[in-house]
Amino acid sequence: MSEVYKRELVFLVAGLVAAVMIVTYFLDIPVLNGLAQQLQVWALIIQLMAIGLGAINLVRVNYRHMQQKTEGLWIFSAWFMVLFAIMLLLGLVGLSTGSENAIYSWVFANVYTSLSSTLYAITGFYIFSAAYRAFRARNIDAAILLIGGVFVILANAPVGAVIWKGFPIIGGWFNISGQVPAMRTFTITGALGLLAYGFRTLLGKESGFYGEAGQ
């Protein structure tokens, strides 16, 4: 199949699927509803297959690092292969017994989840340094942001109300009357942008979903 037909076919399939999903979202047509449900199941199956492909990709990349003894990386790749094999084995054992393997669950809860939580906790320090940069009063806009930020911080910190009872009130005003309308404006404009992006995608004017390089 020529590249041109392949491209047209992708757009045709994408357009048809999008049309079915849009129509069934707004209208109750039993035949199309069934088709839409079927399409969603297909999407899920493709997604699960992609996870398998991702695992193969990981093994391939890390095996290559090990084989080529890539400086600074091969040792991590070797460790990855060991852990991958262990988790795969434990998962397969659980699959064969019909229930989740207890060791698999233990490793997941006590190693992976703990490490993830640790990493998440580090975010606090990054937020401090980002806030420091954002709250430097270099001009009038930054000064207004700083003043607003101080009120919001003192409204949320218990010590704020102890210092002055007005902090929670003013901070609350910034949160409700200042932040909510601004965020809703962002949400509305984001939705409009998404509409236009979706329309361009349906017409084949966007390269993202086709895997084509930007013009």
Partner: peptide, 29 residues
């Protein structure tokens, strides 16, 4: 920020018809 992410690829493409959709989006705003 927000819809600029979606609109950026249209600006990069530079096609007049693609840029036309940005104009439509602005009118909608």
């Amino acid at each position: 920020i927000m819809e600029e992410l979606y609109a950026a690829s249209a600006e990069i493409a530079g096609d007049p018809d693609v840029l036309g959709s940005l104009k439509g989006e602005d009118i909608l705003k």
